Simulated scan of single mutants.
Amino acid sequence: MKKILFFALLLWTISCKNEPKVIELEAVQVDSRIDIAIEINDIMSDTIRIRALDYANGDYWFSGSDGQYGRIEEATGHIEKFKVTLKEDQSIEFRSIATTELYTYLLSAGNPALIYKIAQSNNVVKLIYTEVEEGVFYDSMKFWNDQEGIAFGDPIEKCLSVLKTLDGGTTWKKVDCAHLPKFIEGEAAFAASNSNIAIYKDHVWLATGGAAARILHSTDRGSSWEEYATPIVAGGMMTGIYAIDFINEKRGVMIGGDWNKKADNLHNKAITSDGGKSWKLMDAKNGPGYCSDIIFIPETDGKELLAVGSEGIWWSGTEGVLWKKLTDIGFYTVRMVNSKEGYLAGRNKVSKFKLY
């Protein structure tokens, strides 16, 4: 089904008398698109929840609940779906996916934690990691290349779980608690969109939630770490940072909020220009409340952002200064490989979209 929505870039605010006021944008306009439209085409309807998307070699890969995953040929839209089933008929939920030049990796959420390695050339699937422990729950996974990868999860014992491989997943090793920033009781992470890890060259950033909303940052692919405070709302079980994205070692963006108060857009989105050491909150008068994913739109030099959540999709052409809601249709996660096209995934669906 096709859905087309158009808007002019105007910001609506509410005055003290609760009367709408239109504010012109000339003072903040940057070299970006000033009018935008989104066209959404649902290409797959299913019973699964899809929270993870990635892209490699002309294919979008997705993973979700009930052990299901698949790939979409970008050129043709052809979809292949697959399923992993445990012998004991236990349901698997894949909330994390990572693609490299040759392989696709799937990571399950919950106990047991399972990582599968899929050869993209012939679809051969191999179980390469198993972790059975009460409380284990991984939230996100990324790979720098075919050999080096990292996964991030909720705390076990006295620190957050950070898992690394240097040999393409043949072996995995947890980062010792002594090498991570001091754990804050009640801090965890969210497996909402496979987006609370960001990597760029040797850098990796991890985003937390719950009792604290912090960034853990490494400049050497996870060998050493430092921590940064953020202004994102924290203190509740469902508060904190849900997604981050970086376009270089300095410029990054984050979004989250309170899942229980999705309309609240105060203290839920911020941007950094120093690698995450400091963050500037985006104006709460406009823009999205709770969202599960955010990206810098490719080929726009960081000026354009797309935020996605269960309450809809928002676009900014002013580096997050001003936002416009594109649609009320909700999704969990988004990926784009150019400035015009990409895929969205959510509950029971995958959709292709275009920006005009």
Score class of each variant (00 low, 15 high):
residue 128 I to Q: 10
residue 75 A to S: 10
residue 91 S to H: 08
residue 135 G to R: 09
residue 106 L to I: 04
residue 45 S to G: 15
residue 62 F to W: 14
residue 104 T to V: 10
residue 139 D to A: 03
residue 37 A to F: 13
residue 128 I to S: 05
residue 98 A to N: 00
residue 62 F to H: 06
residue 19 E to D: 11
residue 19 E to F: 09
residue 70 G to C: 08
residue 5 L to T: 12
residue 82 F to C: 03
residue 21 K to P: 00
residue 108 S to F: 01
residue 30 V to Y: 13
residue 5 L to Q: 02
residue 13 T to N: 12
residue 127 L to E: 08
residue 20 P to S: 11
residue 128 I to W: 04
residue 98 A to Y: 00
residue 143 F to D: 04
residue 97 I to N: 08
residue 10 L to D: 04
residue 6 F to G: 11
residue 133 E to C: 02
residue 85 T to R: 05
residue 76 T to M: 12
residue 16 C to D: 15
residue 59 D to Y: 05
residue 134 E to G: 12
residue 87 K to E: 12
residue 144 W to C: 12
residue 99 T to H: 11
residue 63 S to F: 02
residue 94 F to Q: 00
residue 22 V to P: 05
residue 105 Y to T: 03
residue 91 S to V: 09
residue 47 T to A: 12
residue 53 L to C: 14
residue 29 Q to W: 14
residue 147 Q to T: 03
residue 36 I to K: 07
residue 54 D to V: 10
residue 137 F to K: 00
residue 32 S to C: 14
residue 28 V to R: 06
residue 24 E to Y: 13
residue 15 S to N: 10
residue 13 T to Y: 11
residue 138 Y to K: 05
residue 90 Q to H: 12
residue 43 I to L: 14
residue 26 E to G: 07
residue 84 V to E: 06
residue 110 G to D: 06
residue 102 L to V: 04
residue 40 I to L: 14
residue 52 A to W: 01
residue 41 N to K: 15
residue 10 L to G: 02
residue 143 F to E: 07
residue 92 I to A: 00
residue 12 W to R: 09
residue 95 R to Y: 02
residue 117 K to M: 08
residue 33 R to F: 13
residue 150 I to D: 04
residue 60 Y to G: 12
residue 128 I to M: 11
residue 54 D to A: 13
residue 39 E to Y: 08
residue 96 S to P: 10
residue 95 R to T: 00
residue 87 K to P: 08
residue 11 L to N: 03
residue 33 R to T: 15
residue 55 Y to V: 11
residue 53 L to D: 15
residue 75 A to M: 06
residue 149 G to Y: 03
residue 28 V to I: 12
residue 23 I to H: 09
residue 49 R to A: 14
residue 101 E to N: 10
residue 140 S to R: 13
residue 79 I to H: 09
residue 21 K to N: 10
residue 24 E to W: 12
residue 83 K to A: 06
residue 148 E to V: 03
residue 10 L to M: 10
residue 47 T to Y: 14
residue 85 T to G: 03
residue 31 D to K: 14
residue 54 D to N: 09
residue 68 Q to C: 15
residue 121 S to R: 03
residue 48 I to S: 12
residue 44 M to H: 15
residue 43 I to S: 07
residue 79 I to P: 09
